[in-house]
């Protein structure tokens, strides 16, 4: 089946960033969004461990391990960067100062519930900043495959995995579609041209609503 690559999903999510926005990208896949900022769109990236306006990773051998992001990767600073302690950092998150948070997901429910921190009760639990990041940003977006590796829907009526946050997700960018969460429902905004709404619905665990024909989801080869 034709679907978007991770880079293409990240590219699509990046197109909704606006110049001057304060943005937190979750650790891992969401970090890829930074590569695809539209031209003339300079966003300011926030990282939980106390840096605003960081740039790309330094060249190998140039790392300063006191200068890292929340994923413990070495970063560089852009002109205008700032440092702050952890309480201020999470004040930026919970206090509603961030414009966008883009996160990964195991499951998203039609009411916006997000499960992205653990899949069961085994092993060593680790939550990091996941439960904080879902509260306070003006937009909480998710980027994800449309279905899990085993074919199970990731967009569901209600999450079966442990919740990260309740009713927090506002938009989902998947490998097949762009879907908003509005008033307890998934609303289809864009889909790949080669997939029918019925096919997409069959791979989605909750009803897809649409008030108008969805736009084509067109992304470049990457």
């Amino acid at each position: 089946m034709i679907k978007l690559s991770n880079a293409q999903i990240a590219w699509r999510a990046a197109q909704d960033l606006t110049d001057g926005a304060y943005v937190n990208l979750g650790i891992g896949f969401p970090e890829m969004v930074a590569k695809f900022q539209p031209k003339d769109c300079n966003v300011i990236f926030h990282t939980e461990n106390g840096v605003l306006d960081f740039g790309e990773a330094p060249a190998e051998g140039e790392e300063d391990w006191d200068l890292i992001n929340a994923g413990k990767k070495a970063i560089t600073l852009k002109p205008g960067a700032s440092f702050f302690h952890h309480a201020d950092s999470f004040a930026m998150v919970r206090g509603g100062h961030l414009d966008v948070a883009i996160l990964g997901a195991y499951q998203v429910a039609q009411n916006g519930d997000l499960a992205n921190w653990r899949v069961g009760s085994k092993g060593v639990p680790a939550v990091g900043g996941a439960m904080d990041l879902v509260h306070g940003a003006k937009r909480v977006a998710v980027i994800t495959e449309h279905v899990a590796k085993n074919g199970e829907p990731k967009l569901v009526e209600s999450c079966t995995f442990p919740l990260t946050g309740v009713g927090c997700v506002t938009r989902v960018y998947t490998s097949l579609a762009v879907i908003d969460v509005e008033q307890g429902h998934f609303v289809l905004r864009e889909k790949l041209p080669d997939i029918s709404i019925d096919e997409l619905q069959s791979m989605t665990g909750a009803e897809l609503k649409y008030d108008r024909a969805p736009n084509d989801l067109i992304v470049p080869e990457l």
Binding site: E48, H86, R94, V127, G129, M131, H135
Partner: peptide, 29 residues
């Protein structure tokens, strides 16, 4: 296990003499 922002704020609150506070973090989890 404490969410990172809650951990930071619990520590800050202790230093500021605030015995408890309310946060949206972890509600419903």
């Amino acid at each position: 296990l404490v969410p990172q922002g809650t951990l930071a704020e619990r520590i800050r609150a202790a230093g500021a003499g605030i015995p408890a506070f309310y946060t949206p973090t972890s509600f419903g989890t």
